[in-house]
Design a protein around this nucleic acid. Structure first.
Lengths: 203, 203
DNA sequence: CGCACATGTTGACGTTGTCAACATATTGCA
DNA sequence: TGCAATATGTTGACAACGTCAACATGTGCG
């Protein structure tokens, strides 16, 4: 667990992930190089190959941590409001947006397409599914409470996911820097848009 | 306009853009290298520097063509249904999704975050704004027809944009490969989700 | 103890983005 | 027309990068 000697690092795997995430959030995906990551972790430029098949595998592992965070945030919503599906939904929206804005480059890595589907690891796919399943559960709870429209659970969940995801992407990628800058505005926007999404746009 | 000699290409600028777009759609952003683009266009590996400041400038120009397509698609919706704001909105949704699925890698370049805001050219920003303005117009038409809820135009437009954008991103990035594969399914999903978005999720 | 294995290093290779220096064509002006 | 300024394209170089092969060093198990 701890550093065992000068030669063997002891926990290089996690040290590399940490170094990579730091580099990622500071410089963006393009600014992450295996050699720089290795240097930051204090090892030679090929040491990472003992822990990751190649650069994409490191990035995929980084993206996976993002999906884990997301999945856990979704599951927390159900735990925090066991009796109130609408609150679950509201909290989920805010959590999603907050994660995207709090870790813009990780989000970008998760959804930005630098990692092609071929690069996805099994674990990444599993955690990604877990996140969507979390949202599905929230929608299902809403349906069981009888307050949702009669549509397939998957479709409602996909609609909500699309909306929250789209807003998060636009936000964290800087496309809304004129519309919404500070967190307060963003929170207000999420509430307002969430309200419209639930109530509808037509009179 | 045409090729003028063996030495001078005549229209390298556009030839480079075409070569780059072909490479982009075939291999993804990661597969685009300036040298390969130059080779495809039949010039030396530094010739592109006479037409683009650096690699990001080439990519930004490529992204700009995507925004132009998007803006024109939005504007076409208003032209095609001058008297029917709801049809404008429906067509806009389908057009957005179709563009995203038809040119997944260009879409990825536009929104995927490989290009950081610092790399955005003035023209890119202009065309990006034009696209959003097109959507704003469609929403404004809906409001003037009196059928939309009483909310700020910007907020409604942002809600619609987020939803359509989010779905397109998830789709073109392969996150929905289980949910929606063929175009027919996607069209149906867009209609269904569009309906819910307009009518609302709550009973 | 000794050996298999995991982990880390060194050095090399081809590719990439970019720069400086140079070559060649085009254009505008006398 | 002719020449000079400029636009456009080329060659060669460099450092940084991802990756591989060969080697070194430490760990843990019999």
């Amino acid at each position: 667990m701890a550093k065992t000697s000068g030669y063997h690092h002891g926990d290089l795997h996690n040290a590399l992930l940490a170094a990579a995430e730091a580099l990622l959030e500071k410089q963006g995906v393009g600014g992450v190089s295996l050699r720089e990551v290795a240097k930051t972790a204090g090892v030679s430029h090929t040491a990472p190959y003992r822990h990751f098949k190649d650069k994409n595998a490191l990035l995929a592992a980084l993206a996976t941590t993002g999906y884990v965070r997301l999945a856990e945030a979704m599951e927390a919503c159900v735990r925090d409001h066991p009796e109130d599906p609408l609150q679950q939904m509201s909290q989920a929206s805010h959590a999603y947006v907050e994660l995207a804005i709090g870790h813009p480059q990780v989000t970008n890595l998760m959804f930005g397409g630098v990692l092609q589907p071929a690069d996805w690891s099994d674990e990444l796919g599993k955690e990604s599914n877990r996140a969507f399943e979390g949202l599905l559960t929230i929608v299902r709870n809403g349906q069981e409470s009888g307050r949702y429209v009669d549509k397939e659970t998957r479709e409602i969940a996909l609609l909500v996911w699309s909306t929250v995801h789209g807003f998060s992407m636009l936000c964290s990628a800087g496309h809304l820097h004129e519309v919404a800058e500070d967190p307060r505005q963003i929170t207000a926007l999420v509430d307002s848009m969430g309200g419209m999404l639930m109530q509808g746009i037509l009179k």
